Simulated scan of single mutants.
Amino acid sequence: MRTKFHDQLDALFDQLTAMCRLAGDAVTTATDALSAADLTLAEKVFGLNERIGALRGPCEDQAMALLALQAPVARDLRQVVTGVFLVSDLSRMGDLAEHIADSVRRRHPHYVAQDRTQHLLISMGRLAGVLATAAALVLQTRDPALALALDVTDNGLDDLHRDVLTLIQEPGWGGSTIEAVDATLLGRFFERFGDHCVEVGRRVIFLATGQQLPQ
């Protein structure tokens, strides 16, 4: 019975890993769309998020089945409950990537951002993609040491976010009010994407050790 339980649990985490990889593809594609004001790439993000959404239901069903049929306790219960929460985090990551793509679509054929603002936002997007790749590896291995490293990488994303907000408030910044709003929103989307990657790491640490790290 326990062998079957762990096989089913592994299958659940395989699906969660696939969701995370799709979210990484989505944020990377959205960043490419932002960089080139490319409508085709922006539309591709919506398709990637649909694939994430298609995995959400089966993941939730699998977790509920494990709870109902296997009656897990202690660490096993912790792993299943963690899986339920991870579904929400990973779905939100896909939604945030879609928000970024939607900004590109709304402003097309114009660029959403210009010059240094554009550079900072693209840098945020690239780092968000790195975080998603690392988070997928954390889900695949359930390694708490790798999970801890996500927070360190996310600090770089937070620094870039602060740089964006500082830049658009400088007296010499030449952007319009609309561009300031877009930059603020995009910075927030990338920053929240990174936060969800870190949350994936925190949940895996809880899964492996039973310890909850402070927010």
Results as ranks from 00 to 15, higher is better:
V81P: 06
L157N: 09
T117Y: 00
A134E: 14
L127V: 01
D38S: 06
R142M: 10
G83K: 09
V204E: 04
A97G: 09
D14V: 11
P109L: 07
L213E: 15
A136P: 06
H6S: 12
Q79C: 08
R78P: 00
G174P: 08
A135T: 04
T117C: 05
M64S: 12
D25G: 04
S91C: 11
A132I: 02
T40F: 02
Q8M: 10
D159W: 04
D32W: 02
E191T: 02
Q62I: 06
R188H: 08
F206M: 00
D151Y: 06
D182F: 05
G175P: 03
F193D: 09
A71Q: 14
I168N: 02
L213I: 15
L86V: 02
G175Q: 06
H99M: 11
E60S: 13
K4E: 15
G47V: 05
A33V: 06
V84E: 03
V204A: 06
M124A: 00
T3H: 13
A180K: 11
T82H: 01
H119T: 15
Q114W: 05
L39R: 15
I205Q: 01
V80K: 09
T177S: 12
G172S: 09
L160G: 09
Q211E: 15
L16I: 14
D154L: 07
T184R: 03
V84Q: 05
A54K: 15
Q118E: 15
C197Y: 00
D158S: 08
A54W: 14
T141E: 15
V45Q: 11
F85T: 09
L69E: 13
V198Q: 02
R51S: 09
Q212H: 10
H99G: 08
L55H: 15
V164C: 06
R142D: 13
Q215R: 15
D163N: 10
P109H: 08
Q215N: 13
H108I: 00
G53P: 08
A145H: 13
G129D: 01
V200W: 01
Q212A: 15
S103Q: 12
R126E: 11
L139I: 09
D163Q: 11
A128H: 00
A145R: 15
N49C: 02
S123K: 12
Q62E: 14
Q15H: 13
A132L: 01
A113G: 05
L69I: 07
S88Y: 04
R75K: 11
Q70P: 04
S35K: 12
P109E: 07
V87P: 01
V138T: 09
Q169N: 13
L96S: 05
E98I: 00
L165N: 04
T153M: 14
H196Y: 10
M1R: 13
R188I: 07
F193A: 06
D154N: 14
R116N: 10
G83A: 10
L121M: 03
P171L: 05
D102I: 12
D159L: 13
N49W: 01
P72E: 02
R203I: 06
A134R: 15
L120P: 00
V27R: 07
R92N: 10
G175T: 08
G187S: 05
Q70N: 11
A42N: 01
A36H: 14
S88T: 09
Q114G: 11
V152M: 13
V164G: 02
R126I: 07
V112A: 05
